[in-house]
Design a protein around this nucleic acid. Structure first.
Ligand SMILES: [Mn+2]
Ligand SMILES: [Mn+2]
Ligand SMILES: [Zn+2]
Ligand SMILES: [Zn+2]
Lengths: 123, 123
DNA sequence: AGTGGAAATGAAAACGGTTGTCACTTTCTC
DNA sequence: GAGAAAGTGACAACCGTTTTCATTTCCACT
């Protein structure tokens, strides 16, 4: 594990939100860390391959990375300010498994994101 | 509705699978249809904004488009062959509304995608 | 310690899907 | 029909990501 990869992992550990490679690169640099953008991409790729981080495609095509949390959960995101709440619920999990099983699908995974306007922003 | 947009919609109607803008452009051209790639993108964008087509980000970052039925629904997608089943379920809808309301969020929307290996592909 | 091969690094260039530009054409409205 | 509004498309720009390749770092084994 090189200095740079360790730095990327540590940076990821600071926040539980999904963040882009470029954002992580910028933070590392502004913290005085000497690292190249290419290396950040490679580190994230390697961590994703090893199952240590989740990768998500945002709507604008940018990839977002997050350290894998042990418990499975979803996100409630404010459209205006971006505030994110981590949520979980048996109901969705069961529904996803059932609907997939009903159609003969195996190895089921799912993505669920809920969007809205948070209390602060609607005030 | 221009000739080109009509052509894009008709092309989408030919198949129920998700297809990329470039693929639709290529099909239209090889069928002798005079249309520009930019226009195909704009037509798909307009159809998506109007809720007539679903947009999906594939893992490689390319956007995929498909005509969709007008009622709210979600997708069950085969990881291997891309086969897609439209599914719906009260359970998810209720869960999304509840979890958002519990955190004071309003104007709730959500995205739900279920992935797995379809029966054909696991055989 | 010393050595050699494998792996990692990073600046720069290339890549590829998508979007912006702008002169031009088509369509709509009166 | 005339003028306004919307749409078109070749081309260039954009931007996140990947490839390249010369250089550096790491590491297993003396
Ligand atoms: Mn879940
Ligand atoms: Mn659909
Ligand atoms: Zn907010
Ligand atoms: Zn399949």
């Amino acid at each position: 594990m090189s200095r740079q990869r360790t730095a990327v992992r540590q940076e990821l550990a600071k926040e539980s939100a999904f963040r882009s490679a470029q954002e992580i690169y910028a933070r590392l640099r502004s913290a005085g860390n000497r690292v190249g953008l290419t290396t950040v991409y490679r580190a994230l790729q390697a961590l994703a391959d090893g199952g240590e981080v989740d990768v998500l495609r945002s709507d604008d095509g940018e990839a977002a990375y997050r350290l894998c949390s042990q418990s499975h959960h979803h996100h409630l995101v404010c459209r205006d300010c971006g505030r994110t709440v981590e949520v979980e619920g048996r109901a969705v999990e069961r529904w996803a498994d059932q609907v997939a099983g009903r159609h003969g699908f195996t190895g089921v995974e799912h993505t669920v994101e809920v969007f809205g306007t948070c209390a602060d922003c609607s005030a």
